[in-house]
């Protein structure tokens, strides 16, 4: 889903950079107000883990491959603002060192994977926990949120490509092409995200206190 240089025109690059800069400013402010010393090694570990996980490409449909994004798991563990910072670090290093994603398109890539791919899973999971208040709701919300986050991130990528004058096809064509494949990727992301949360809920529920959505659940002893 990493859009390289040359795929998006100036307008799409500028609009996506503008949206991303707003979220960077918001996330930095929120993280500065809440980041604790104990949270930093966890944040670094999760960021490194999902950077490494993105190197594993597994086959999906139509001869294409996919990899995990990691945004949903980071968002649900650390909260969406720290999650966005983590995804930004991954995407900047990928673009600058490996040419995986462009420099002019960094705003679009962070928007897709670091904003949509992080805040959507968090919002879905938060709604699920608020509605049903149980650890099952947390895991179901994590799966659904990760699936929707990946799918919507792909739809945004398709939309950006479709709206760019460089791509000769209309937005619906690019959106459909990206969305269909990434719905498969979303299932894998959902399973991994729910799995990571399940392991942390059982082994280290204290770490999930950093994410306000799980904090209330843990305080209520929600292990149903």
């Amino acid at each position: 889903m990493h859009i390289p240089d040359g795929f998006l025109d100036f307008t799409v690059c500028a609009v996506t950079y503008a949206g991303t800069i707003l979220f960077w400013a918001l996330s930095l402010r929120k993280v500065k107000a809440s980041l604790t010393d104990r949270q930093i090694p966890l944040m670094a570990t999760l960021t490194a883990m999902f950077f490494a996980a993105q190197m594993m490409n597994y086959p999906i449909i139509g001869g294409t491959t996919a990899h995990l994004l990691g945004g949903p798991a980071v968002a649900l563990t650390l909260g969406p603002y720290a999650g966005m910072i983590s995804m930004t670090i991954i995407l900047v290093i990928q673009a600058l060192f490996f040419g995986d994603g462009g420099v002019t398109t960094l705003g679009a890539n962070v928007w897709n994977m670091g904003v949509v791919g992080v805040f959507v899973p968090y919002a879905v999971c938060l709604a699920s926990v608020k509605l049903w208040k149980s650890s099952r709701a947390l895991l179901a919300g994590a799966f659904a949120g990760a699936f929707l986050g990946d799918l919507l991130a792909a739809i945004f990528a398709g939309l950006e490509l479709g709206l760019s004058t460089i791509f000769p096809y209309a937005a619906p064509v690019a959106v459909a092409a990206m969305g269909i494949h990434h719905s498969v990727i979303g299932v894998g992301e959902g399973i991994v995200t729910a799995g990571v949360l399940k392991v942390l809920l059982k082994s280290r529920p204290d770490l999930l206190q950093y994410s306000s959505l799980t904090q209330n659940l843990i305080q209520q002893g929600g292990s149903r």
Binding site: N57, G62, G99, G102, A157, P168, A177, M178
Partner: peptide, 21 residues
């Protein structure tokens, strides 16, 4: 082995990446 959807879509639409970095 990497064959990402976006690469396939770009190939299908005959669009090539132009690296500035």
């Amino acid at each position: 082995q990497s064959a990402e959807t976006l690469d396939k879509v770009a190939e299908h639409f005959d669009v090539e990446a132009t690296s500035i970095w």
